[in-house]
Nucleic acid binder design. Structure first.
Lengths: 157, 157
DNA sequence: CTAATGGCTCAAGTACACTTGAGGGCAAAC
DNA sequence: GTTTGCCCTCAAGTGTACTTGAGCCATTAG
């Protein structure tokens, strides 16, 4: 179970391009679960590299660490995930991404519409009928892209 | 030039759904340029509502305030922008968005590929050949989505 | 005319995602 | 066998994007 050739934090840092401090931070946030040697050093299994790469990609897509933790939740923490664990998780995540992409597409189209209309006669402009933006996320995260921004949920009154 | 019916910060807040504190913050960051009454109160022109809505949308797309400031730079600061000012700016921005969407699409496809391959035999997996990720942004912003992550710029060695 | 409402500045606080530094332990390289 | 390098923890600092609060002025409603 604990192989001699498991990886130190430095190994993992080299292979993922992440700083050791970042990896420690991810552990403290519950995104990776290295075990410890007798002397207290972290040891990572090889599939943790995949896990960290996943975190990197998801971050670049604009997901917060807590959203990523949620996505990773179904994977087993202690043993490395097997192929079907990984496949199920990835598929679920792909659906979430597609929603987010669709959202950005809608925002983009909304902007397009606004280029057309010129919108100097205001009030009719799609860009700022802010009804659908009403429900804020509070002191929100950077990239919200909530579903309530979609273009057809509330028929323009 | 200074109309009686220009808007107070509260008016603008109501119409955009933004908090007054947020609007003040955007001014301090150079994203809006209200003028002041004799007594020092901010007054906004009507097109500033459009400007702020643009900021909101761009943020939801994951752009930082400084990126948004750049996009807004070509618009005139003092007078309200006219239709062609706005159109030019929006078109330019649409191109930037399309690049970002393409990037996310590539990341998404990369994930898809990885679902297929199972990637338990590592090293060949697209998800963590980190060569193209090498140039980091430092203590970077949340949603980087840099161009160096694209799939065809550097032929996989 | 006064009181409530809304605006102003400035300093400090908050959340997220880390990095940096101090102070100390362990392990592989010579 | 010691020195060099990597690892550890914990506290504090950084940058982005705001919010909150104190103390104060201005505008509007009764």
């Amino acid at each position: 179970m604990m192989k001699a050739r498991d990886l130190t934090i430095g190994d993992v840092a080299d292979r993922t391009g992440l700083a050791p401090s970042a990896i420690r931070h991810y552990e403290s946030e519950g995104l990776v679960h290295p075990y410890r040697t007798d002397s207290g050093q972290r040891r990572f299994v090889r599939t943790d590299i995949r896990r960290l790469s996943f975190i990197l990609i998801a971050q670049q897509m604009g997901f917060t660490l807590s959203e990523i933790r949620e996505q990773l939740a179904p994977l087993p923490k202690t043993r490395g995930p097997n192929k079907s664990d990984w496949t199920r998780m990835s598929r679920r995540f792909a659906r979430v991404i597609d929603q987010r992409l669709a959202m950005m597409q809608r925002l983009r189209n909304r902007l397009d519409g606004c280029i057309g209309c010129g919108c100097l006669s205001l009030d009719s402009c799609h860009l700022y009928n802010n009804d659908d933006r009403a429900a804020k996320t509070g002191t929100g995260p950077r990239l919200v892209i909530q579903d309530n921004l979609d273009g057809n949920a509330g028929v323009e009154k």
